[in-house]
Design a protein around this nucleic acid. Structure first.
Length: 284
DNA sequence: AGGATAGCCTGCGGGC
DNA sequence: TGCCCGCAGGCTATCC
């Protein structure tokens, strides 16, 4: 389940291999994964970066943008099971189901630069095309909250103001903060010692400061470890992430708390499986 | 209008 | 062995 750390790591892996490459061919085998929720008219190859030279990548929350010098920008969202990886020139692309889009890349002097592959079995993800990076930030990304990796306490407090939900529900809401999903919401709340059902309104300034710090720390540590692979996620070179080995609560229901030894509890909060330590995490 | 809920979709694991 | 059901979850649409 790719969340912010997985996308941030992907950004780092792919940026050097994609920057400067020219897109020579785009093979789109599932047009319905492009521009979902929009017009659904057939998308032009140019909007899918055909003929464009890639300038670089940009990320906000869980979304990644491939930006070209000419303007056209493709926003990639991996959803639940999405994968985006680079297959080097001369290497055979292993046979896979559910490959929806492949970009064929070329270097400055016309040499092969391999292929960029988008695969998404569950199809909760997709591609969104924009005529410029500015258009992406002004439309699709303008609905998102501040990026969680660089979130400071004041911004978090401002973002949380006015909501009466539980802290877990608020953290999962991309309009509040962008980048946190179910895995890291549980890990962050454990690190902060906050019970997931705590009301946002009852967290004071100190708790918010601590929470903002934990958000940054957990996400940065997970990014450094290449993210968490539960089932599908692989990075830009097709490798799984290792942060799942360091999960303190997610996926560990009924096991002993790594901090106090008591049994971890599991509930449902905001329609999501939620694991927490009833001793270490306080209900506010 | 904020918040809860259903639905999208495939793969996998448990139970029979 | 094989089938069926339930679950996993990011996000949008819809309802209350």
């Amino acid at each position: 389940m790719p969340e912010l750390p997985e996308i941030a790591h992907l950004n780092r892996c792919l940026e050097p291999v994609l920057s400067g490459a020219v897109v020579r061919q785009v093979k789109l085998s599932r047009p319905d994964i492009v521009d979902r929720g929009r017009s659904q008219q057939p998308v032009s190859r140019r909007r899918l970066l055909m003929g464009e030279r890639i300038k670089g990548l940009a990320r906000h929350g869980k979304q990644l943008a491939i930006v070209s010098w000419g303007g056209p920008t493709v926003c990639v969202h991996l959803g639940m099971s999405g994968q985006l990886w680079h297959c080097p020139a001369g290497e055979r692309l292993r046979r896979h189901d559910h490959i929806h889009c492949v970009w064929h890349l070329e270097g400055t002097r016309g040499q092969g630069r391999g292929r960029l592959v988008f695969r998404d079995p569950r199809r909760f993800g997709g591609l969104w095309c924009f005529s410029s990076m500015d258009e992406l930030t002004a439309t699709r990304w303008s609905h998102l909250g501040p990026d969680a990796l660089s979130l400071d306490a004041r911004t978090l407090r401002r973002s949380l103001a006015g909501t009466r939900r539980s802290i877990k529900a608020a953290l999962l809401d991309q309009h509040v903060v962008a980048g946190i999903g179910n895995i890291y919401a549980d890990e962050i709340l454990f690190a902060a010692g906050i019970h997931p059902q705590s009301a946002v309104t009852r967290l004071g300034a100190d708790r918010c400061r601590r929470l903002a710090r934990c958000i940054r720390h957990i996400l940065a540590a997970a990014t450094a470890h290449g993210g968490s692979t539960i089932r599908d996620y692989v990075d830009g070179q097709g490798r799984p992430g290792s942060f799942s080995l360091r999960h303190r609560v997610y996926g560990r229901a009924t096991q002993p708390c790594t901090s106090c030894g008591n049994r971890l509890h599991q509930t449902t909060e905001a329609q999501r499986t939620t694991v927490f330590c009833p001793v270490c995490q306080h209900l506010f």
